[in-house]
Write a protein that binds this DNA or RNA. Structure first.
Lengths: 109, 109
DNA sequence: TAAATTAGCAACCATAAAGTTGCGTATTAA
DNA sequence: TTAATACGCAACTTTATGGTTGCTAATTTA
């Protein structure tokens, strides 16, 4: 198993997975695997795989209920991504100044 | 070419790429491809590929200077990721309540 | 001018990833 | 108790990914 943060980044890297996650966040009720798959024009197994990866990343929780497995979104792990980005946010506003500085100094030289 | 946001998520999904990006953010001077590859115990071509993906995502800018290609980090595109996450941040604090609610109601039923 | 350096391009390899189908099993409904 | 439903597991296919090596071209240094 990979590290948590790696699995998190991997989980949100796939657009289909982001869509599934989004749908789970928006819905008020829990969705079973089959319900998700009808909603996404994808085979049930395809959804199962994505759910597994989302679950590994902690972004989706699953409760078993008879033959059903209901999926819930849990956005909490995204805080980690937020933390990762927080460091770079300080460079957002002056980021290309570095490039400008370089170009200016080399032109002057 | 994929969409911008997809390329962005893809770019930061790989841990090596995040490391390279981080090194470029931290360094005061620009780094050439060769300089990066010596720093990362990876072949020059491996680095070139990563830089290309980072460049596609807008996270790295390149200036050519003779036979050198100097790379600069540009964290600005990460704002998009931040925007994507902003929506989910409203669910961070009460996320698992959804699950709790479900479990409670089903137990009561 | 000859040698060294920086890098792109192409081919290649191994593995992972996204998705499918088929089949068996457990649970629910008729 | 039979039929339908929900699902997991395994196998398979296709394509992407991360990485390598070999070769060539351009630029810089001796």
């Amino acid at each position: 198993m990979q590290s948590n943060i790696n699995m998190l980044f991997k989980a949100i890297a796939d657009p289909t997975r982001r869509e599934i996650f989004h749908a789970l966040v928006l819905t008020t009720s829990a969705l079973s695997i089959t319900q998700i798959s009808t909603q996404f024009d994808m085979s049930r197994q395809g959804v199962t795989k994505h759910i597994k990866i989302l679950n590994d990343a902690g972004l989706v929780k699953i409760t078993e209920d008879g033959r059903n497995r209901f999926c819930f979104a849990d956005p909490k792990p995204l805080k980690e991504v937020n933390k990762w980005m927080a460091f770079y946010s300080q460079y957002w506003d002056d980021s290309l100044d570095k490039l400008d500085d370089y170009l200016n100094t080399t032109k002057k030289a």
